[in-house]
């Protein structure tokens, strides 16, 4: 069995050790490495029907004939509002509406490091029912990194099933209906492999004179930063071991940010084989970056478009450079 298939990988372990630790008060104290973990063969119990249905490519809810509410997921088979009247299974549509604008997690918990940024939210599936619960859901987009403006309240969503399903809430996710080709919108189930999440189309940016001026200023600032990186051990340490050719498309034109040999360098136009291309209407984002701003924030807020989370992982390193350069200049 591979490491990945195990519940806990080797990274989740610690050496058997008692070590010294210093706190706020004088004196040395001891700490011991330990754990408090149990393993489970957790029964799905009455929820099994819901997860069996997911495995079969179906979405089911529990319906109460008395109050006509629909509970999705089918978390109980007895209606809590009708003195536990029996609820019956109903088949639910594979389309829904986002009940509220979804938050996007940037800094995840230990178990989800590497998944960020990701969006989760509540989907109203039984839209015809007078009373209905919302389905806690993974939200994905085929248009690049999740960012504000995509998963907003009321957006129509299409249910998508993973091709290989095990019986988990992660067997399903939702994408904006408008991203689903018309021919696939009624597919039940629609499988993830039918949609392309890996090569999102670059957004269009209008080119104008103001954009060109903003780009000229930004490039001058980035060139200046590049020169300073050459004299900054801290910045070079930030870049150590990294090689990237990052294409940048702006409202003033394109350029390439090369990262190699612990240096950054600006190149003209998009590279023939970029690691990835980022897109921003206002090249001023790069001027602000050099002046201690944040490319990460620009991506999180949606101004800077990125194709995937791997691209997002590069930004914190770039964001460190202006600070490192400044500290070494002191």
């Amino acid at each position: 069995m591979s490491e990945r298939a195990k519940i806990l990988g080797a990274v989740w372990n610690l050496p058997r050790e008692v070590s010294e630790v210093k706190g706020k008060d004088p004196g040395t104290y001891l700490q011991f490495n330990s754990h408090m973990v149990t393993f489970y063969q957790q029964t799905y119990g009455e929820l099994s029907r819901f997860f069996l249905a997911l495995r079969a490519g179906r979405l089911i809810g529990a319906h109460c004939e008395k109050c006509r509410q629909v509970m999705v997921p089918a978390a109980s088979w007895h209606c809590p509002t009708c003195n536990f009247a029996e609820m019956r299974e109903i088949e639910l549509p594979h389309r829904g509406v986002l009940a509220a604008t979804a938050p996007i997690t940037i800094f995840p918990s230990a178990s989800f490091i590497g998944d960020a940024p990701f969006a989760r939210g509540y989907v109203d599936v039984a839209t015809d029912a007078p009373i209905a619960s919302f389905l806690p859901s993974r939200l994905r987009t085929t248009t690049g990194l999740p960012r504000p403006g995509i998963f907003v309240k009321g957006v129509e969503l299409k249910l998508v099933f993973e091709d290989v399903r095990e019986g988990s809430i992660r067997d399903i996710f939702w994408v904006p209906m408008k991203e689903v080709p018309a021919a696939l919108r009624d597919a039940k189930p629609l499988l993830a492999s039918k949609l392309d999440f890996n090569t999102p189309p670059m957004p269009e940016v209008a080119r104008d004179a103001a954009g060109e001026q903003a780009l000229a200023r930004a490039l001058a600032a980035v060139e200046e930063l590049a020169a300073k990186v050459g004299a900054s051990p801290r910045a070079q340490k930030d870049l150590a071991g990294r090689t990237h050719a990052i294409g940048v498309r702006t409202g003033g034109g394109d350029f390439t940010l090369h990262v190699a040999d612990a240096r950054i360098r600006v190149g003209a136009g998009l590279p023939p084989k970029p690691d990835f291309v980022m897109v921003v209407a206002d090249a001023g984002v790069f001027s602000r970056w050099v002046a201690d701003g944040s490319l990460t924030d620009a991506a999180v807020e949606g101004a800077l478009w990125l194709p995937h989370k791997e691209a997002f992982g590069v930004l914190p390193i770039l964001d460190r450079l202006p600070r490192s350069v400044r500290r070494d200049a002191k």
């Binding site: 009940a99 938050p103 178990s111 989800f112 998944d115 989760r120 993974r138 309240k153 988990s168 992660r170």
Partner: peptide, 21 residues
């Protein structure tokens, strides 16, 4: 462990869901 935790739910995103709503 059935519906919420596997999606990466945290206290922060849960409270923020209320704030977004």
């Amino acid at each position: 462990p059935f519906f919420e935790y596997p999606l990466g739910a945290t206290a922060s995103d849960s409270y923020m869901q209320m704030c977004m709503g």
